[in-house]
Design a binder for these strands. Structure first.
Ligand SMILES: [Zn+2]
Ligand SMILES: [Zn+2]
Lengths: 640, 640
DNA sequence: TAATGGGTGCACT
DNA sequence: AAGTGCACCCATT
């Protein structure tokens, strides 16, 4: 039973708040770095995960640990902070919100210097099994539209990356690996063609995303550390509830009894299937990992979708050659040395390149020193900022793991590709980095019901977590059910039913009302307990997943840093939602759906429907991105 | 205990025959296509595996099958024929015999059209388990200096390729994947650099060999078929007894009770460790798979090391930029269309491009038609020759498997790299395809004790099998023990003791006397039962592994085709060497060692000692090779 | 398991 | 740190 696209029967009363906030981007009280590459530019913002834990356990690494339940509020409660380690340099953002009209390729990335910073996640559960890491990360990154796979692993390391997009659906554009295309001519004289096809294992252009998460086991600390590397993406972020991997993940959640996480993901699924913005539910938590977190210079990337506009697009329906790279939020913008802002200046609607936290000069290196001792709050101001060469011995007490992890390798000249020079220029032929918006779901995405272009979502640093930064999927436009999920779920195809695959006890989650959009940004120290240029916004009464919700989208520059804490206090928080979970879903689903629909309709005016993947000429920029990626992954710390 | 390089105490009496034959290359009674690229050029020749089976079982696929024992003479008895399916185009051969002085890189391959043919192996045991295929192939290809690994597999296919060379030993040259080197300049403007780094999964330049073996399970035939694709190599062939994989393989042989194979490999190991040419021991076998084999157009590739001489080398010690590609033997050289012989003509000492079997014009396509019916002997003349487009329906009775397998894909224009144009020209910078002579063994190869340059080994089509085409390793020069293997083996390091890791009962294998070198080639129908331009030479009294031995090396053009048969007649042939196996090894080892030493000394005059891997500028040609390889592996049969 | 080719997850090395 | 062996996939025809 195929359901029509998501269009009608919207109760606008539910969505007023959302819409107001959506259009209230300019209302940001604080300067916000925002760059819009073009009309099609949209933002995929990874939210800041904020919440307060109870049972503070400062400076201890020995809290009880239960990967699946320790933070029983499931993925809601990872209160990581958004800190751009170095400069705020980021680029335009090109998202997919509203339609499939995502850009096809990334021509050039902006200067990759800043994006090539390490972002440490913390707190990290004291994983006892390497295999526990991935589920934990999945709980964090699935809501961000990032499906992680393991690139490499061994007993002391796990490297995650974005799952390669499946070429099956669109299957139009040939794989890049074969290097057929560009070598057509040198049949008889293979000598002078300088098309140097550097060989890697066959990789489609859907598998070039530089984003990496590295988990490393520190023998000294006897703990796993998690670092986000290359916090950007060559693709749009999309949460795909139909993914097999996701299903497995969710099944595992169920098997592990992490019902709260299951419910949250149920909610996420529903919203995503309905093309609704994700509500950020926040759970305040004061578990008190703050000190420890500070010592780890915790940051939670907010994977922004930043793209350099190659050319202006008159409408969202143009087969975008638009470059796109999804990067993270920024903070601390060091004086742009050799930095090419042309892209940003040209394409951004609002080019708020205000340098925030310039009090942390580029010379601030090795800031994450006081690892084993609580970092003074003033130190956090520059935490995460690692520019240039870090003296190897600046951090005497730092464990080896952190030593290495924080040491940023200033790539030797040429040992990488700097896209800054070309970021603003259109490339003839429109070759670009492979990029694909896999609308993995069932039906083809016919309708751009929602177009979030021109809508500059401002990231709100609430304490919400759930569903942050999950782009409104555009691929299921024609497969969205208009039926009541409750009454039709049994007959609907899982792929087209927004409520499909939801657990029965997730209904209560949808009772949460319209999101409260907080357009708070900051350029300086603010927030509750952050003095380091990060923000920790607490929302009253948001102690549980059903509390405050936030729509976080279209954020160009978002910087946030909260007192990071998460920590393991399973005994107090575990599975407290179980009791009330098994209730009727009908009313809440309806309400929620109406809200969703209202939002969808409100944003559908700008159109940009089914933008269709196009272009095949992405070889060059692909190569560059690849080279760049290769260099990014090269040894970072030559001296350490 | 480190043993000095292999130098002294040689009993020349044992090696006279060898030496005579080594120097008697010109004595070939029959025109032989030989191309020597330079002084350093040596030949790695994959021998023809010839033997006669008993118990003919024509046209049946249901012979008893025992992977490990069916051909109980172990790897000696795979009597595959050497048939170059298409033109005899092959190139210079650059081997490693004598020293490590193998060329480092392959600059260009010659025109790859001909090499891009499929070679069917047959008979193939009726594998009941996919995992049985690899051991079987290993028995065949280990002696050829090819270590196979699985590239990809599933329930219906297994694709093998050469194991990537380990860069650990030399570890000098950086990996190519990062694409650092050539992209150093485009830091600020990444737009116009046209260095298109086609991305594949990270692959070192030691992992670019195009050689493939594809095993495919045919549902219709309910059998596995094995096809050799891209019968050439980007590297020298070297049998590495120290390989972990080889050890496992050998252990498996032992576990499976295939003691004959174990002995043969023991012998092979000994010879290889002692830098001795491999004796080709042949076991006549008349098991009678001939008819069936014919119907399958069986060919056994003889993986020649063919290299296009990029430049003349004044001495073997020059850090060779010498291009090298290892290809297979040839037969039936169709009129060279678009074929570039410049390389061969320029670099060869003896450019014997005599066209043999020109009676098989290029129009002969689809020769392997009478698949299910016994192929008339006359038909075999063109068997394996597939030039250009093969009419899809020429082979009505051919199974689908064979249909497809034999259909050679005439690569569309540009869909591949043709090195012919540049094959003869030196490339500035000497960039070349990655090539490495991994002297995998224990100590560094200090001495070029043996230099087989200028020695044109002629491949003899005897019925010998064992150790064919295994290059004399050069890397163990300084680790060759001069002690009596018998008395010293206990104290010697396995890596330096030629007799190390030998099974005790392998001694008798070394009792075989000096090899009988048969310099028989053919240019026309000859041999015992081949009318198709293939040769089947039977040696009197060579019914067992200890029989005739053949030194097969330095063969440029070798074409051979025997009535192929192998087949499964385990009952008659199995493990007939077991009884006499458990004898003393001392005498035989000594004898053998003397022989080996004599040979080594005799050929050491030309020097080319430890040529040391050099050069780092192989990006361009690497790219070309890679591209070419990619195209080679592309769909071969667009219309079928 | 129609055949055939290739991408890629991921742990081993 | 990363190459790579291998298998589980999926693709096209
Ligand atoms: Zn990504
Ligand atoms: Zn090879």
């Amino acid at each position: 039973m195929v359901t029509p696209p998501f269009v009608a029967d919207i109760d606008w009363s539910q969505t007023d708040t959302i819409l107001a906030d959506l259009n209230g981007k300019a209302a940001n009280p604080i300067a916000f770095n925002q760059v819009n590459s073009s009309e099609n530019t949209q933002i995929q913002t990874a939210p800041t995960f904020l919440h307060s834990h109870t049972l503070p356990q400062p400076h201890t690494h020995s809290h009880p640990y239960d990967i699946h339940k320790s933070h029983s509020h499931s993925f809601l409660e990872y209160n990581y902070n958004l800190v751009n380690p170095t400069s705020g340099r980021i680029a335009t953002i090109d998202g997919t919100a509203g339609t499939i009209a995502a850009p096809e390729h990334i021509q050039y990335a902006m200067s990759n210097k800043d994006e090539n910073k390490l972002i440490h996640l913390d707190p990290v559960p004291d994983f006892k099994d390497k295999n526990d890491i991935k589920p934990w990360l999945q709980k964090i990154f699935y809501p961000q539209g990032i499906e992680l796979v393991i690139e490499r692993s061994d007993s002391t390391k796990v490297v995650f990356k974005c799952k390669a997009s499946k070429r099956g659906k669109n299957a139009k554009e040939p794989m890049l690996p074969a290097s057929h295309k560009e070598k057509i001519e040198n049949n008889s004289s293979g000598s002078d063609t300088k098309s140097a096809a550097k060989k890697k294992r066959s990789v489609s252009r859907f598998n070039v995303c530089p984003f990496r998460i590295r988990a490393t086991y520190s023998l000294k600390r006897k703990r796993w550390g998690v670092v986000v590397m290359n916090n950007m993406h060559s693709h749009d972020l999309e949460f795909n509830p139909n993914s097999e991997e996701y299903k497995k993940f969710k099944d595992k959640l169920k098997d592990d009894g992490d019902m709260e996480a299951v419910k949250k993901f149920d909610e996420l699924e529903y919203r995503v299937r309905a093309h609704l913005p994700i509500h950020n539910t926040m759970i305040p938590c004061d578990c008190g990992m703050t000190s420890e977190i500070q010592s780890f210079n915790i940051v939670m990337p907010t994977t922004l979708a930043a793209g350099s506009a190659k050319r202006d697009k008159s409408s969202g329906t143009s087969p975008g050659q638009q470059p796109l790279i999804t990067t993270n939020s920024n903070i601390h913008k060091p004086p742009p040395k050799k930095r090419n802002d042309s892209l940003l200046q040209r394409t951004a609607k609002k080019n708020l390149m205000t340098m925030q936290y310039t009090n942390s000069p580029s010379e601030i290196v090795g800031q994450s020193l006081s690892m084993d001792s609580p970092m003074a709050p003033s130190e956090m101001g520059s935490a995460g900022i690692l520019e240039g060469e870090t003296p190897a011995n600046q951090i005497p007490n730092l464990s080896d793991f952190m030593d290495d992890q924080f040491h940023i390798y200033e790539r030797p000249n040429g040992n990488g590709i700097d896209f800054s020079g070309a970021s603003g220029e259109a490339v003839p032929g429109g070759s670009g980095l492979p990029m694909m918006i896999t609308t993995s779901g069932g039906g083809g995405g016919a309708g751009g019901v929602m177009d979030l272009n021109e809508i500059d979502f401002t990231n709100i640093f609430t304490k919400s977590f759930n569903g942050n930064n999950v782009l409104v999927p555009t691929s299921h436009a024609n497969s969205i059910s208009h039926q009541d999920p409750l009454s039709s779920s049994g007959a609907m195809h899982p792929d087209v039913d927004p409520s499909a695959s939801m657990t029965p006890d997730s209904a209560m989650l949808f009772r949460q009302q319209a999101p409260n959009l907080d357009h708070q940004t900051y350029s300086g120290t603010m927030g509750e307990d952050c003095e380091d240029g990060t923000v920790a916004l607490s929302r009253p009464g948001s102690n549980h997943p059903t509390a405050a919700t936030t729509l976080t989208s279209h954020l160009d520059y978002m910087t946030a840093h909260t007192d990071s804490h998460a920590a393991e206090s399973p005994s107090t928080q575990r599975s407290y939602t179980h009791g009330a979970a098994m209730e009727s879903t009908s009313a809440s689903m309806l309400d929620f759906k109406q809200e969703l629909e209202a939002f969808a309709r409100a944003t559908s005016g700008n159109s940009a429907t089914t933008p269709a993947e196009t272009t095949n000429q992405l070889q060059d920029s692909e190569d560059q991105i690849n080279s760049w990626l290769s260099s990014l992954n090269k040894p970072r710390s030559p001296n350490l």
